[in-house]
Nucleic acid binder design. Structure first.
Length: 652
DNA sequence: CTAGGGTTAG
């Protein structure tokens, strides 16, 4: 009884209390462990059993299968003396999950008999890999059908984007249950029809957690953040998936601060250990969340769980790992995962290349790109952006021009607006403002506000007032809520020693009610992500943090550091400006990192804005006087500070 | 042991 309720502990207590255990009670205990995916206990029971029946072998097989030990499952299956239908079917699902469709089909054809469960598993295996014709054929060939097979086909059509076919299946079904309704809801959602999705949700005779989550994700997927929030609030219960969906929706909308808060409240540890069996998608989702938040220690734990569950051979999971380590600045780890992959697709290469690109290591990025070509993987439009970005971060104008031309000359890929945007960025940051301007004017796309913002940032680097003014005007008009053009233009005026104009722009920004996005930084210390907002006094250790900043300040001044108050936008006195600078979120995070980690430990910071020039100069000095490595990820790239220098060579 | 919610690169 307790086993069926999921109370494994209680079941074990009762089992231990039984005086004369027969093979029946041993078998029950074994299957309870097997079903909960607890391999080591299942093995323990199996080894201690007085004798083994066919059922106990099958239970052990399912323990291997559920815990992701697919190699061991295969070996066990091959050595089994006799196999019942269930063992064959378990093995089929293992192959369907961890191997290719050919292996699964071969196994299916070998089966002495096939019941509905096996047929449905085969249908799902085809659908999972996008083989809709085969899935349909399997369905048509099935000797009989139940709700499982109908729903499997319905959801396959929904996921393949054919909502009309899904609707036809739904209408032909003999009966509907919650599962069918939810599959239909998702089908509508994926086709962009939230109205029909909501109608399905309202028509359901009852709603469970999964139905609620499907509705949540329907709103999130179609960009309705307000309704997404509302559903999340109204849900009667939530699990790992609903939390992760909400976190992803916030990340999608650039609400990093809020998503981080939610991420910390997410009950992920319990979800990984009990309650639900994590599958490949669980790991991908969690790794993705960690990667955005720079939660390295947290992600490492997930990596360990991935390996333990046997998902480290999965292509997509490995890609997510490379991407996670890359985004956390752990290049070495990213490379280890990448090198260990049996198979790589264009996404694997792209993840690795952009890891190098973000560190400004253009040589390695280029080398990888050429290795990818020689290994026969075709490039796509996205990988070009990564490579161009690497060029842009290292200031290699010539190489990027050649590379850009090779897109048109050597590949099947049509250059997109994004490719032109990268080129404008490369030229602008290298100081070739006229060339950047020409490209902007002559390119075969209509440039959006983002491109003019790129242009404007380049003008700031080279204090080009005239071009800067022109670019800013465009952004003011095309993206009226954005504070960046105001701030950048004001900074250009300040640098050009035109304080009155700078003040005029600041006033304009105020009059138009445009708010500057507050600077925000995170640092992970002892598995927890700590957040700091510029000037914030909310942290429980604020006194120690502020004292550390004072102490650091004295040390830094001795080392020759002086502040660049030009970057302060507020209209305040000079010494007040100095104060504001000392409490930028990045410096608060660094100070906190310094007092909460052992001497010599590297610090990893994630920012929601780009590094400001004063923080950049200050962090260089801090790395020298404290002897710490400091890694800062801003919205654009990584800065790796070490011994008074930064990996970007002050080019960013 | 089979069906519904999440899915990796800019």
């Amino acid at each position: 009884m307790f086993g069926r309720l999921g109370c494994v502990e209680r079941a074990r207590q009762i089992f231990d209390a039984i005086a004369d255990r027969d093979s029946f009670s041993w078998g029950i205990m074994l299957s309870i462990y097997a079903r909960s995916g607890d391999l080591s206990n299942a093995k323990g029971v199996f080894d201690r059993m007085p004798r083994w029946s066919l059922g106990s072998w099958t239970a052990l097989l399912s323990a291997f299968a559920l815990s992701g030990h697919h190699e061991e499952a295969k070996t066990l299956f091959d050595t089994m003396q006799e196999r019942d239908l269930i063992a064959w079917t378990i093995m089929l699902t293992v192959l369907a999950t961890f191997s290719n469709i050919e292996d699964a089909k071969y196994h299916f054809d070998q089966m002495p008999e096939r019941d509905l469960v096996a047929w449905t598993a085969m249908l799902a295996a085809n659908a999972e890999r996008g083989q809709m014709e085969n899935a349909r054929e399997t369905f048509d060939q099935m000797p009989e059908r139940n709700l499982f097979s109908w729903t499997s086909l319905l959801s396959a059509y929904g996921r393949s984007g054919d909502v009309k076919a899904a609707g036809r299946v739904f209408d032909s079904m003999p009966e509907w249950n919650l599962v069918a309704w939810t599959a239909m809801l998702t089908g509508y959602s994926l086709s962009g029809d939230v109205v029909r999705a909501k109608r399905a949700f309202d028509s359901m005779p009852e709603r469970d957690l999964i139905a609620w989550t499907a509705m949540l994700s329907a709103y999130a997927f179609n960009g309705h953040l307000r309704y997404t929030r509302e559903i999340f609030q109204r849900m009667p219960e939530r699990d790992l998936i609903s939390w992760a969906t909400m976190v992803a929706a916030l990340v999608e909308n650039d609400l990093l601060e809020e998503s981080k808060e939610l991420f910390d409240r997410m009950p992920r540890h319990c979800a990984l250990s009990k309650g639900m069996t994590p599958n490949r998608v669980t790991f991908i989702t969690l790794l993705d969340a960690c990667s955005f938040l720079g939660a390295l220690a947290e992600g490492r734990k997930i990596h360990a769980a991935v390996a333990e569950r046997g998902f480290d051979t999965d292509l997509v999971v490995s890609n997510a790992l490379v991407n996670f380590y890359g985004r956390c600045g752990a290049l070495g780890d990213a490379k280890i995962v990448f090198d260990g992959m049996r198979r790589r697709d264009v996404i694997s290469w792209s993840s690795m290349i952009s890891a190098f690109a973000q560190r400004g290591r253009v040589d390695e990025a280029m080398e990888l790109y050429h290795r990818m070509l020689s290994e026969g993987t075709l490039p796509d439009d996205i990988i070009f952006i990564s490579v161009l970005f690497a060029c842009s971060n290292s200031g290699v104008v010539e190489a990027s021009g050649d590379f850009f031309r090779s897109i048109v000359g050597d590949t099947q890929v049509e250059p997109t607006l994004e490719h032109y945007a990268c080129m404008v960025d490369v030229l602008g940051r290298a100081g070739k403002l006229r060339d950047a301007e020409d490209l902007l004017r002559l390119m075969p796309f209509h440039p959006g506000p983002l491109l003019y913002m790129t242009m404007l940032s380049a003008c700031k680097l080279y204090t080009d007032v005239e071009r800067g003014e022109a670019a800013a005007e465009v952004v003011f008009e095309l993206d009226p809520e954005n504070s960046s053009p105001y701030i950048t233009l004001a900074n250009i005026y300040s640098a050009a020693k035109r304080p009155k104009d700078a003040a005029r722009i600041r006033k304009l920004m105020e009059e138009r009610g445009i708010k500057k996005k507050p600077g925000c930084s995170w640092i992970e210390v002892l598995d927890r992500v700590h957040e700091f907002i510029a000037g914030d006094k909310m942290h429980p250790q604020r006194d120690e943090i502020y004292a550390e900043i004072q102490r650091l300040g004295r040390q830094m001044k001795e080392a020759g550091y002086f502040q660049d108050t030009k970057v302060v936008l507020q209209d305040v006195e000079e010494d007040e400006k100095e104060n504001l600078l000392w409490y930028h979120s990045e410096k608060l995070a660094i100070a906190f990192g310094l007092i909460s980690t052992p001497p010599g430990a590297p610090l990893r910071i994630v920012k929601n804005l780009r590094v400001c020039s004063d923080c950049h100069a200050a962090t260089k000095v801090i790395s020298k006087v404290t002897g710490r490595e400091i890694l800062v990820r801003d919205t654009n790239r990584f800065h790796h500070f070490q011994n008074g220098m930064c990996s970007c060579n002050d080019y960013w």
